[in-house]
């Protein structure tokens, strides 16, 4: 665990947990262990209520962990909420899911606020994010549509030029063309400056070409974490006759339909299984869906989610050797 304090990780969680509503409240996140190396574009995926927004609120230092530890660039954010808060806030940009902005400000006021509050502000970059939405500078924030407000909130977070960019469902109310342009601006800027990006979506396919790292959450637990290529390499979609013995490997999901059996195997044999078995490398959305279905099945069998350790699902992680 000591070697995890390395500064080459932008975000690390060690036994991280967060509960709301006091000592008896439900856990929104629990037993989370993962590490995101700096410079990665990390997709935070999972169904609604998985704990994605709680994780963003913790990383943005809007609330403190209830147990365990969250470290940003190697500095721990402790349960008392202190840590190295002030120094870290300057290095983080956050666009929350509900896009909080001052309604009575104009678009120009909001950009000026970004400029005055952030020494590293890049006006041209913020305006590039905005121009894609063709926003009038003198329009009041309160009069903007949901999609336009999203753009303004993203312009604030991206214009700050942070080292760690936290984007909670940034694409949810944007049209497809604007999504594509925004991702283009975001990724090219991240490529230039080596920004680490945590970006969430409950639409699994949306970020398939965008992310090179994933963190899959389900019911407040980490189900899958690691580099996309490493995770895909470690899994195979296998299909064959149902009456044959299953090829070796840990079954993330296994289904029998009539005479056919299909499933996703983790750590299969390096050699492909003999005919009539067929196997292929999964796509990212297939990998995530299989793990989510596997998690949901385990969850249903073990409905008592409050128990601290007994129902703990075994997460699949692959730390990139960097």
């Amino acid at each position: 665990m000591e070697k995890l304090t390395d500064d080459q990780f932008a975000v690390q969680a060690v036994g991280l947990g967060k509960r709301f509503g006091g000592a008896t409240g439900p856990w929104a996140l629990r037993h989370c262990d993962f590490a995101v190396p700096t410079g990665r574009i990390c997709g935070v995926m999972g169904p609604n209520g998985a704990g994605k927004s709680t994780l963003f609120a913790l990383a943005a230092m809007l609330c403190a962990p209830s147990e365990g530890e969250l470290r940003l660039f190697g500095s721990p954010l402790t349960p008392d909420g202190r840590g190295d808060g002030d120094g870290l806030r300057a290095r983080i940009g956050f666009a929350a899911q509900d896009k909080p902005l001052y309604r009575s400000f104009t678009v120009a006021d909001t950009l000026r606020m970004g400029r005055e509050l952030n020494p590293s502000w890049n006006q041209a970059l913020a305006e590039r994010v905005l121009r894609l939405a063709e926003l009038k500078q003198d329009a009041k924030v309160g009069s903007l549509s949901g999609g336009q407000r999203s753009r303004l909130a993203l312009a604030l977070a991206i214009g700050k030029q942070p080292e760690l960019l936290l984007l909670d469902e940034p694409l949810a109310d944007l049209d497809p063309l604007v999504r594509h342009d925004l991702l283009g601006v975001l990724l090219s800027d991240a490529a230039d400056r080596g920004t680490t990006v945590l970006i969430s979506s409950h639409t699994l396919t949306e970020l398939e070409e965008v992310v090179d790292h994933v963190l899959l959450l389900h019911s407040g637990r980490v189900r899958l974490a690691g580099g996309v290529d490493e995770l895909l390499d470690a899994h195979r979609l296998v299909s064959g006759p149902a009456d044959l013995e299953r090829p070796p490997g840990e079954a993330v999901e296994w289904r029998v339909t009539g005479r056919r059996a299909t499933g996703l195997l983790h750590h299969p044999d390096p050699a492909p299984p003999p005919a009539p078995w067929t196997q292929e490398r999964p796509r990212l959305d297939e990998l995530l869906l299989a793990h989510l279905r596997g998690a949901a099945a385990g969850h249903a069998q073990n409905a008592d989610t409050g128990a601290p350790t007994t129902d703990r699902p075994s997460p699949v992680t692959s730390e990139a050797a960097s």
Binding site: G184, L187, S188, D192, E209, V210, D212
Partner: peptide
């Protein structure tokens, strides 16, 4: 450049 491709196609720079 990778940056130019990324800006046009919105794929991950590492790709």
């Amino acid at each position: 450049t990778a940056r130019e491709v990324v800006e046009l196609t919105a794929v991950n720079p590492n790709t």
